[in-house]
């Protein structure tokens, strides 16, 4: 099978050049200072010290984590019931629902986010409708509320689909068994349905948290130019101020935080599974 094995060589070279090398460049830039095209090889921690000693950057980082956490939690709470509902439909309806939930995600994220500007504006559709019943107008555009709403809107389908996938694998007779054994509806949900859907919840959390923490177009479009998340700061350092070294350091910090949080989530998943097996 040597002939076939050789077919991987071009891609290995390609991947080393276009996937691995750029990531190494980020690390290299993060640990050096000054010079965009000419890389100085003077190793330094200055960029990281600068980030962690400036309360402004720490504030942005904490805000990003908070916004991403709220978005993820909201997607989980709002998405769980629909996933459960779809999983209990008949086969034909299941497929239809999955199509309905998936369809918006096929449309460009920018296009979908732009639509919210007109809806949330001071004289937008929501405020016009609230006006009919004598409420408002509320300021929604260019607030954190708009940013979180935009993120929930864009990412909730991923959460629903992940939970649905794990729920649809569940054996429904388990619920009958638990009610035969004397559990009420709530207990059955807590002890049977919820643990069984945990893998879906975990992968749903990763699929929402990851893009939410690093997004920069949603905060920019719905939060306004003054509203900054980590992604916006990185964008500025690369495209406006041109300090690539510091920008690289920030993205490295963000990547490490994301990898750590995913590692912890996975660990929780594994221990939960282990405990379930033991029980």
């Amino acid at each position: 099978m040597k002939q076939f094995r050789r077919m991987t060589y071009p891609y290995i070279v390609w991947a080393l050049i276009l996937i691995v090398a750029p990531l190494l460049l980020i690390v290299l830039y993060a640990f050096t200072t000054k010079g965009n095209d000419v890389v100085t090889t003077k190793f330094t921690f200055d960029n990281f010290v600068r980030f962690f000693s400036d309360t402004l950057f720490l504030k942005v980082l904490i805000r990003s984590l908070r916004v991403a956490a709220i978005t993820t939690l909201a997607c989980l709470l709002l998405g769980y019931y629909p996933a459960y509902y779809i999983a209990r439909c008949s086969e034909t309806f299941k497929m239809k629902w999955v199509l309905i939930i998936t369809f918006p995600t096929w449309i460009n994220l920018l296009v979908r986010t732009y639509a919210w500007i007109g809806i949330l504006q001071d004289d937008g559709i929501i405020n016009t409708m609230l006006g009919w019943i004598g409420l408002g107008p509320f300021k929604m555009m260019y607030t954190e509320f708009a940013v979180i709403l935009g993120m929930i809107y864009n990412f909730i389908p991923f959460m629903i689909l992940q939970i649905y996938t794990s729920l649809t694998k569940m054996d429904m007779s388990l619920l009958e068994a638990s009610s035969d054994l004397g559990a009420d509806k709530f207990q059955s949900f807590l002890r049977v349905t919820l643990p069984l859907s945990l893998p879906g919840i975990i992968s749903g959390i990763t699929l929402v948290f990851l893009p939410a923490v690093s997004s920069f177009c949603i905060p920019n479009m719905l939060g306004g130019g003054q509203y900054m998340l980590v992604g916006n700061v990185i964008e500025q350092y690369f495209l406006s101020s041109g300090d690539w070294n510091f920008g690289s350091a920030i993205s490295m910090i963000m990547a490490v935080i994301i990898i750590l949080s995913m590692y912890i989530t996975k660990k929780v998943d594994v221990t939960e599974k282990g405990e379930a097996k033991r029980a």
Binding site: V213, M254, A255, I258
Partner: peptide, 9 residues
């Protein structure tokens, strides 16, 4: 990786 990390790389 977040898209933005791939992008700046």
């Amino acid at each position: 990786n977040p898209d933005i990390v791939t992008a700046i790389g």
